[in-house]
Design a protein around this nucleic acid. Structure first.
Lengths: 162, 162
DNA sequence: AAAATAGGGATATTTGTTATCCTTAATATG
DNA sequence: CATATTAAGGATAACAAATATCCCTATTTT
């Protein structure tokens, strides 16, 4: 069970978009080049962000993407779910109904206990991702990345931001 | 990102094995029939449980599986990881190293901040699964399943347990 | 008018999951 | 001792999902 690589891409792209000055946009081309990713396929991940309303887009030269809200209001969970979907990792196929001892018409009211427990674990995962904001990531990166690299990266992005 | 169906199978099988009297074994054939699962493929899941030492096996007629330890000492995490593996759901491909602004020889000491956060969420998922014991599931099932169905199921298993 | 962009459909390619089949070694039972 | 039954595991096939790539369209800036 492995998350799509697009999840990693989307998170890194949002981190870059968070540094974009108000009202400016960054293209798929620039984001793909900066991260060394296949442009066409990265585009699909960005489309997912767009479809869920996490980013705004604009067309034409100087077009591209910008965040639809402040990094303090954007959680990891939103970004992850935009790309990966909202479905649970545990799928209950209700194999308890195959029990040969069951009365033919019998039907349970509650979901299977196994499923409920597994879903609680899923919820714990979600809770953690919901508790982390994009701004938290930006804070960490600002501290960890050498300031000269940070400066050069900002400049690189600004040169290409429409 | 969806867990293998074998995870569901392994959890339900362990629940059945937990009800087995001391020293007796239940075969793949019986477990497959009880849950309505493909015997040969279920066998692979049971082999995973065996390889990680969660169950004991014995050969020959009246052979099969039994739990290697008490249900109070067996966690959901152990069962899930036996089948699904212990690897993280988020794989960091270190795309930060593709940043065109980096100095050629530059190398980070710490794992990527994005990965660290995603791994914390994985850990929250694991923590939850580690906190639930197989005996907790048994307790819930004993309450929820109608006592006559429970009784018939026990009898069905005992008839086939070697 | 021209160039660049996002969006999206169609289609491979690769990998992982699901499943089946068959052989081997071990063991209980008659 | 002979037979039937079992787990273990290797080989392989069918199927689904992830990972791309290509191309066309509508929009927008220059």
């Amino acid at each position: 069970m492995i998350l799509k690589s697009q999840v990693e891409w989307a998170l890194h792209c949002c981190a870059i978009l968070a540094g974009l000055p108000e009202g400016r946009y960054l293209s798929t081309k620039a984001l793909a080049e900066f991260h060394g990713l296949p442009k066409e396929y990265l585009s699909k991940a960005l489309q997912s962000l767009s479809q869920t309303g996490l980013v705004h887009t604009t067309l034409g030269p100087s077009g591209g993407y910008r965040l639809a809200k402040a990094p303090t209001e954007l959680t990891f969970l939103e970004i992850v779910e935009a790309v990966e979907g909202k479905s649970r990792t545990f799928v209950c196929t209700n194999i308890r109904t195959n029990n040969p001892c069951r009365a033919p018409g019998y039907c349970e009211e509650t979901p299977c206990a196994v499923a409920r427990i597994m879903w609680e674990a899923d919820e714990a995962w979600r809770d953690k991702l919901r508790s982390v904001r994009l701004s938290d990531l930006i804070d960490i990166l600002s501290q960890e990345i050498p300031s000269d690299l940070l400066k050069r990266s900002f400049a690189w992005v600004l040169e290409r931001a429409g």
